[in-house]
Design a protein around this nucleic acid. Structure first.
Length: 554
DNA sequence: GGCGGAACCG
DNA sequence: CGGTTCCGCC
């Protein structure tokens, strides 16, 4: 079976026996050479040991696309893990864990590592490295420390180091269980599995793949009472159709729940992208050099209410009403945009596709999907790039809490242990490890904090107001082309002259609303516009803790 | 086994 | 950017 690209949302069975008749040869760009110089499949590296076949499995194109694998043109590990999990033949190697939604067990670490190495053309791959990558995918450090790190140690710090301090939390390690991990689906609305049939109960087979069901119903499951990592709150269910109600109001005030300042910042950052007439990354990249390819500059946005039909979208016409100036994602008044309500737990037993050989989903499902998307972007500070292709409308938001009123986050500075390089050349410039002071109070092991229970605590802590009465008209997220060959610019609305002010202001706004990563990177790249926009800071669009700001003066 | 820092890579 | 490689530590 393979995804019927570029028709997004469609796939059809493609069994092993059909492989030989595969009409779609792999792109040369997706090949690599082994040590002997022979060309071999890269993206197409078969996860099945099948030297003769030449094709192996065909992976969906999205797996190698930037917009589906944010920031990468190659498949990401968690994508790969999911793929293995959805294939019956690997059940003996890796499988969903029964009883815990999203949890899976690597039954044969060496084999999984081998498969991964095969896929990535890394013959030296082993479980140690694989697990390192898995650990990578669950980094969990407070983003605020990034700001401090940068401010205080700008000279010594480069982006490569700072990136370690960003949130990911795609995966958890299940403590106490060997080779057991758990997808943090709370943080991850499966961008490439928008039609996952998520069931509240483990009715479906254990290792059923996360692919659409024949009926293609999109279920918002009841919260899993057994999963400690899931938020559980009464009424946090999605009554059928509740999400589909047209709601004239963008968001009901009464329904808003607190979010964290961290989220606020990130949400603002992303809204910046969403609101930007042209993609800020694009301008940043253009200014700082060709760091990003054009196709990386996603998504493209336009004015509210504009939903150019996308030829490759599963929807010939946007399923969203597209009302100008109004939130286009229908939100039930009974719903809030809290993580709680948008946390849904994936079933390890996602219904297998078992029906017709062709599948397409309907607008209603898409609405659910979009809803989740929008909320995930905001609640879990995911990059909108995580949710490609579909028009996404994000509720406008303002920062109700003045910066001065936000409690500075306690941060402790601590010299890092000497790294490999440092150890080699016994010269260690003052490097500093940033670590929340609160950490100190905790048990020595940092890992303790990463447990699921702690995760939940964090979730609680994060609930600081984030959604407020919209201060500005919402922007529409214009879908990006599904087709690799087509260009996003086609659908991009020409950046109309922004009415908000002159170019300087515009620049400041860009800077203010740019995601932290981009900001930092941009500055390290020598961007001249390094001044922190004071007005933006005042607006609380982005900020550093006061303590940090003070520390940076030293 | 599991972890995280650091450097490096494509 | 998403790993990969290496490593020391627990």
């Amino acid at each position: 079976m393979f995804w019927d690209s570029p028709e997004w949302g469609k796939f059809r069975y493609f069994t092993d026996t059909m492989e030989s008749s595969s009409p779609a040869p792999l792109s040369p760009a997706l090949r690599c050479r082994d040590r002997e110089g022979r060309e071999k499949m890269k993206a197409g590296c078969s996860i099945v040991d099948k030297p003769e076949g030449g094709g192996g499995y065909h992976f969906p194109e999205w797996a190698y696309k930037t917009e589906s694998s944010p920031g990468s043109r190659q498949i990401q590990l968690w994508h790969f893990i999911l793929e293995l999990l959805q294939k019956e033949e690997f059940r003996h190697v890796i499988a969903w864990q029964q009883g815990e939604y999203g949890e899976f067990v690597i039954k044969d670490p060496d084999e999984v590592a081998r498969l991964w190495g095969r896929r990535k053309c890394k013959p030296q791959m082993n479980y140690d490295k694989l697990s390192r990558a898995l650990r990578w995918a669950r980094l969990e450090v407070l983003p605020l420390s990034v700001g401090e790190f940068y401010q205080k140690h700008k000279p010594q710090v480069n982006y490569d180091k700072l990136r370690y301090y960003y949130n990911k939390r795609i995966l958890h390690k299940t403590k106490g269980k060997r080779f057991t991990y758990k997808f943090n689906f709370n943080k991850l609305v499966m961008p490439n599995y928008p039609f996952i049939n998520i069931r509240p109960n483990g009715v479906v087979p254990q290792s059923a793949p996360p692919v659409p069901t024949a009926s293609s119903r999109f279920h918002f499951p009841a919260l899993d009472p057994h999963s400690p990592s899931e938020d559980s709150q009464p009424g946090a269910r999605f009554p059928p159709g509740s999400l589909l109600q047209a709601h004239p109001e963008p968001l009901g005030d009464a329904d808003r729940k607190p979010e964290s300042a961290e989220l606020e910042e990130n949400a603002s950052d992303w809204r910046r992208e969403l609101l930007a007439p042209s993609h800020p990354s694009a301008s940043a990249a253009a200014a700082a050099g060709p760091k990003r390819k054009p196709d990386v500059v996603l998504p493209l946005f336009s004015r509210p209410g504009i939903f150019p039909d996308h030829p490759h979208s599963p929807f010939a016409v946007s399923p969203l009403p597209g009302r100008p100036g109004v939130l286009n994602v229908p939100i039930s008044p009974a719903l809030s945009l809290t993580p709680t309500l948008f946390s849904y737990s994936p079933s390890p037993g996602l219904s297998p596709f078992a029906g017709s050989s062709c599948f397409s989903f309907n607008p209603e499902e898409m609405k659910h999907y979009l809803h989740s998307q929008a909320c995930s972007v905001f609640n879990y500070h995911l990059s909108p790039r995580t949710f490609p292709r579909y028009p996404l409308v994000v509720p406008p938001l303002q920062c109700p809490v003045p910066l001065e009123e936000q409690p500075p986050f306690p941060i402790k500075l601590q010299p890092p242990p000497a790294g490999r390089k440092n150890r080699e050349r016994l010269e260690s410039p003052a490097r500093v490890k940033v670590e929340p002071a609160a950490e100190k109070e905790r048990d020595g092991k940092a890992e303790e904090r990463r447990g699921e229970e702690e995760e939940e605590e964090r979730e609680e802590e994060e609930k600081i107001p984030v959604f407020a009465r919209p201060a500005a008209p919402p922007a529409a997220w214009i879908p990006i082309p599904t087709h690799p060959g087509s260009s996003g610019e086609e659908n991009a609305e020409k950046p109309s002259r922004d009415s908000s002010g002159d170019a300087g202001n515009q620049e400041k706004r860009e800077d203010a609303l740019m995601p932290p990563k981009l900001r930092l990177k941009r500055r390290w790249n020598g961007d001249s516009r390094q001044e922190i926009p004071e007005d933006s800071r005042q607006n609380g669009i982005w900020h550093l803790p006061k303590a940090v700001a003070a520390a940076s003066d030293t």
